[in-house]
């Protein structure tokens, strides 16, 4: 994980969450994880392609997802329905887009895929040979992990 990529993601996640949820966001220590990692329950995934390849995964538990969606929509939501999924997807879109904009300003170019959302129990994400940077963020609604696994195109 190239060091220049780290800060844009941390800052984007921090700023966006703080803004849309109007709450304090608690940054926890960053760390690296093996490429195979368990997913907490709801994961929005955004693919990256261009100078670098990889993906960004916004990962949280179902309870957190419902609470975050409730806050963002200003209404109480109690099931993972279309609205919750759409809200989390949008959140992923905003975070990744802001990070990519910051990176673009630094001279790194790449494209995004539209976010996809996955829900379920006991899921794992594997991506051989890429380790993931975990950006854990503590919120009153629960914990959100931004999971960034990108690498330089080999030989590029």
């Amino acid at each position: 994980m190239r060091v220049e990529y780290i800060n844009p993601f941390v800052e984007a996640a921090f700023n966006i969450l703080k803004e849309v949820l109007q709450t304090e966001v608690n940054r926890e220590e960053l760390y690296l994880k093996k490429s195979t990692q368990p997913v907490m329950g709801v994961a929005a995934i955004v693919g990256l392609a261009g100078d670098v390849e990889g993906r960004v995964l916004i990962d949280m538990s179902k309870e957190t997802a419902m609470k975050v969606a409730s806050t963002m929509n200003g209404e109480e939501l109690n099931t993972i329905d279309e609205l919750v999924k759409a809200t989390i997807t949008e959140l992923a879109n905003m975070i990744t887009a802001q990070a990519v904009t910051k990176l673009h300003e630094l001279g790194f170019k790449f494209d995004l895929t539209p976010p996809a959302i996955m829900t379920g129990d006991n899921m794992q994400v594997s991506d051989l040979n890429v380790e993931a940077l975990i950006v854990p963020l503590g919120l009153p609604q629960g914990k959100i992990e931004i999971n960034v696994a990108i690498k330089e195109r080999v030989g590029a």
Binding site: M1, R2, V3, E4, I6, L32, K33, K34, S35, L128, N129, V130, E131, L133, K151, E152, V154, G155
Partner: peptide, 15 residues
């Protein structure tokens, strides 16, 4: 130079 945050315990791909 490219500097990467990487843990040798994890796999990586090299040219």
């Amino acid at each position: 130079l490219i500097f990467e945050y990487h843990d040798l315990n994890n796999d990586t791909s090299l040219p």
